[in-house]
């Protein structure tokens, strides 16, 4: 019995190693998903953009697993690539439409990859997304009085747009990244994304999610409050206070706070790169590991 257990553990370990070897080595520093509208009418199109930054230079990112849709239909998707000095930005834009009034749900987009720094297989995932779908707007009196000509014109334009969208959909279908259901082979060795290592009631977890989702001044202020609280400091404290308070005890917290201040008070033009660096430090901080300088 004991031998069987050992054998099973050995097989599992070998499988994990084999899976890890099949995964790409990617240094993923940002993965976010957001919709251009929070509320849409049923049948009206809206866009969801998935943003990924990797430290490597890559022509494509086929490893990105798109979200599963509930109460929404995909009309098309497109991947855009922007090479940067510090890696590559990918923007995957999905054109969707809500099916029924209610809520449309998108599961997190994710990438399974081996972290080059640690050699571990990791699942990097975005946040889930929910969009409220309202009933389609009925024609009001003014619209009715516009006459049959406008209606016919709209019908023709709508028809042309629908044909174009169908064509785009068919073309993209051949090039689209994998869906979860289409994935073949054994599942990867999954380590949850770093924020998941924090307890669900940890305010840092919410603050990180907020920065990942929005990255604006308000989300940065929330993160600063949480991090300064970790240093035992309240509102009105500064980086120098934090260094005095925890400098030697918790250098990773100081590094993370320094990066946070850079994002919050730095030039707007440098914010995307500074945010990527901050998220990397936050993941390490949340995981309790020392960031490699």
């Amino acid at each position: 019995m004991a031998r069987l257990g050992t054998l099973a553990a050995l097989i599992a370990a070998l499988t994990a190693v084999a899976v890890a070897q099949t995964l790409p080595r990617l240094h993923i520093t940002a993965l976010g998903m957001h919709a251009d509208k929070k509320v849409v009418a049923a049948g009206a199109p809206f866009h969801v953009t998935i943003y990924v930054h990797i430290a490597e230079q890559r022509p494509r990112l086929d490893e990105l697993v798109l979200p599963t849709l509930t109460n929404a239909v995909e009309l098309g998707d497109e991947q855009r690539r922007e090479p940067r000095a510090d890696g590559t930005d990918f923007y995957q834009t999905l054109t969707l439409t809500g099916s029924q009034p209610g809520e449309a749900h998108l599961t997190p987009a994710y990438i399974d990859a081996v972290d080059p720094a640690t050699g571990k297989a990791l699942r990097y995932s975005s946040d889930a997304l929910t969009v409220t779908v309202t009933p389609g707007q009925p024609l009001d009196a003014v619209t009715r009085s516009a006459g049959a000509m406008i209606g016919s014109l709209a019908l023709i334009v709508g028809g042309v747009v629908a044909i174009v969208l169908v064509l785009i959909f068919l073309v993209r279908l051949l090039r689209r990244p994998r869906r979860p259901a289409q994935r073949t082979g054994p599942p990867p060795v999954v380590i949850p994304p770093t924020p998941n290592e924090l307890p669900s009631d940890d305010p840092l977890r919410d603050a990180i999610a907020l920065v990942r989702a929005r990255g604006d001044d308000a989300s940065m202020d929330t993160l600063r409050i949480v991090l300064f609280a970790r240093a035992g400091l309240g509102t009105g404290a500064t980086l120098a206070d934090a260094i005095r308070e925890v400098g030697d005890r918790d250098p990773q917290l100081v590094r993370t706070l320094t990066a946070t201040e850079r994002v919050r008070f730095g030039p707007i033009a440098e914010r995307p790169a500074a945010t990527r660096e901050l998220l990397r430090l936050l993941y390490d901080f949340a995981a309790g590991v020392e960031t490699q300088e």
Binding site: T238, L239, A240, E261, R262, F265, G266, P267, E270
Partner: peptide
Amino acid sequence: AFALPDDVR
């Protein structure tokens, strides 16, 4: 390339 609250204080 940017100032911090500590610079002012």
